[in-house]
Amino acid sequence: MNIVVCVKYVPDAQADRTFNEADNTTDRDGVEGLLSEIDEYAVEEALKIAESGEGEVTVVTVGPEQALDAVKKALQMGADKGVHVSDEAIHGSDAAATSLILAEAVKKAAGGENPDLVLMGMSSTDGVMGVVPAMVAERLGLPQVTYASELTVDGQGLKIRRDGDAASETIESSLPALVSVTDQINEPRYPSFKGIMAAKKKPVETWTLADLGVDAGQVGLDAAWTTVTSFAKRPPREQGQIVTDEGDGGAKLAEFLSAQKFL
């Protein structure tokens, strides 16, 4: 089983995330970054599948120089090889362009055709659009099986369980397929000391757009199909009123709600 996992490098949500004044793009230099939390679940699931049979796990990231950290983390967890797609021209890409680059990278990573399984997170922790899996599936012509809370794969196909808005659903699909996972699916492992040492020897390839045969004019800020025209920091919330319950906390809460016209 040939598995490719797409992992994104994102600014740390605990830090003060912001935008670049010059071109309204996300600031990825001024803020510490890391492997998008939900993508750890995708890596873990790939490792579990590979470990339960025969399989090779390749992780792919598209992003600036530092994005290599996301690949390294996945290799330390146990993935076999890494691919880092990096090119000045990618800066400022929107979701559509990102999905184009990822689709080409996934194919190239699997030797020019669709791998048996592509795994992704349900959404990143910065853009949080939750659209890239659907877009890549559309581009690769793969069955799109998203928001998996449980996944079972056998030789012929796969099955997931997911919590839809109105129902709990079971989905079946043939392979190859693209699956996105939620944080319900497993408990990602921490890299062991052995894993960290082993990762240093694992192969990582760095590809440019030219390596993928993607025209630089199709991606990046200037080619983006969406344009951020302005951004503004929200004024911080004003410090609210905090009372300590002395037997009347509930009554005070109700008074507040009444004064705010919620009753």
């Binding site: 919330r237 609210g240 009123q241 905090i242 009372v243 300590t244 319950d245 009347d248 906390g249 509930g250 009554a251 005070k252 809460l253 109700a254 008074e255 507040f256 709600l257 705010q260 009753l263």
Partner: peptide, 23 residues
Amino acid sequence: FELVDFGVVGDLFTVLPQATEAV
């Protein structure tokens, strides 16, 4: 509490039932 407009420091098992009655 950094986010709130109104906060009660207390046990939800006493605060919420009292608030429910008052509402």
